[in-house]
Amino acid sequence: MSIRHGLLALLERGPRYGSQLRTEFESRTGSTWPLNVGQVYTTLSRLERDGLVVQDDEDDQGHALYAITDDGRTELRNWFETPVDRSNPPRDELAIKLAMAVGAPGVDIRAVIQSQRRHTLKAMQDYTRLKAQSLSDVPANRGEVAWLLVLEQLIFQAEAEARWLDHCETRLVRLAEAAATEPEPEVRTTGRVASRIARPRSRR
């Protein structure tokens, strides 16, 4: 998550001070990724070091205001124009867990999948409840719409996970069935996953 670019985007609307940036960032994203003021000021000082923001005057209450520079605007425009990199996927604990569960002795992989499915669906129910509430709050302001987009991203991501779990289960069931009907699994199965699944069976 880019706090740096998030702050630049808020500063493009006009000079702001630290805690104000924090409040606006959180209202846009529904406190999904909470910031502490310390993080905001650390980021601001790095942005200042890199010439992307400058310290402006103080406001009436004596808050130090920050303003975006031309370089900051260029940086921001580049950020919006550049797709988020997906070529180097972050480590996914669930994917690692399932990969390890395949053929692990004493692990009921269907139970692992089901327990995750229940958890994921429960999270989706909670997100959906928040979404339904947000949709019924009319009129929608810009902050509310931004929050809705973030919420829906969480729902879609969880949905992808739930569908992937269904897929994993179907695949594993099929492989197990195939392995059960093959007398010599290690000789007869050629796929990498298939041979991994078949391995514990051949040890019996």
């Binding site: 499915r117 669906l121 989706m124 959906t128 729902i155």
Partner: peptide, 13 residues
């Protein structure tokens, strides 16, 4: 569809 099931109070598997 998980996304529609998520509107329910309870999901039964």
């Amino acid at each position: 569809e998980p996304r529609y099931a998520a509107w329910a109070d309870r999901v039964v598997f």
